[in-house]
Amino acid sequence: MNRLATKFCCPLLVALFAVAPTYAADEGASSSTSVGMPATIEELVLPGPALEVKPLEDRDAPFVLRLIESYPHGSSRRYTFEYYALEPGDYNLTDYLRPAEAAEATELPEVLVSVQPLLPPGQMQPNALQSSKLPRVGGYWVWVTLGTILWLVAGYAILFLGRKKSAESTAAEEARPKTLADRLRPTVEAAVAGELSQPELAELERVLFAFWRHRLGLDEAPAAEAMREVLAHPEGGQLLRQLEAWLHHPDAGSDVDVAALLAPYRDLPADAMAEPSQEAVGA
C-alpha cells in the first residue's frame, strides 16, 4: 500500500512544484470571483508613479474597483485592490486606474480579473427597463401666462367677492337689533299696546334692568348687588318699582300707566347705551 502511494504521489508532487512558478508568473495578480461577490487582489506591483481609481461616473457601471492601500516598491508601487462586478466577464483593472498626480501616464500592463456568472448559460434576460420622460407641459412663457391669469383672478376675488360678502354681513347685522336700545324699542311698543305674553313681559323687565345696570356702570357687578344699586337710584329705582307694581303686585297694573312708564324707552337712540356714565334717560 505504502509502495503504491509512493509510486503515484511522488510524480504528482514533482509536477506541481514544476508548474507552480510558471502559473504565478503568467497570471500575475489576476483573480476571479463570481457576480456580486467582492474579491481582493493583494501585493500587485505596478510600474510608474502612484495610481488612483478613476472616479465612478456611470451609476450603471458593471465593474467597481476600490484601492485599499499602496506602498512604494522600488521604482514601482505595490497595491491592494478590492473589486466586484455586476456583470460576468473579464475586466482589465488598469482600465480603471489613472495617475494620482498630474504625472505623465505610464504604460501599465494588463491585469485581468475574471467574473464568473452564477447562473447556468442560456438564461433568458428580462427586458431592459425603458425609462421615458414625462411630457413637458408648456414652457417658461406658458407658466408665466398662467401665473398672471391666476394672480388676476385671485385679486378680483379678494377685491370684489370679499366686499360683496362684507356687504351681505353688514346687511345681516343691520337686520338684527344691535344694541339693547334697539331691542328695547319694539318690546316697549308691544307692551304699551298690551300685546306681550308673560315670557315677553319677563324679558322686557330683564332688558330694562340690564339697561339701567349698564347705564349706571354696573355691568361687572354681581347681579344681586347691581339690583340693589339700581333700586337705590332715584330714576332707575322708580322704574323698577313701577315695573314691580305693574308685573308682580297682586293687583297688577291697577294704578300703573304703562304708556307713561315706558314712554322714555320708546325711542332711545342706538347709542343710548354707549356711555355708562350718562345720566338717566328721563332727565
Binding site: 315670557p199 308685573l247 303686585h249 297688577a252
Partner: peptide, 13 residues
C-alpha cells in the same frame, strides 16, 4: 305671598 306669572317666567328662564 303672591307670585306673578312674570316672576314664574324669570325662574323658568
Amino acid at each position: 305671598v303672591h307670585v306673578s306669572g312674570t316672576f314664574l317666567e324669570h325662574v323658568i328662564e
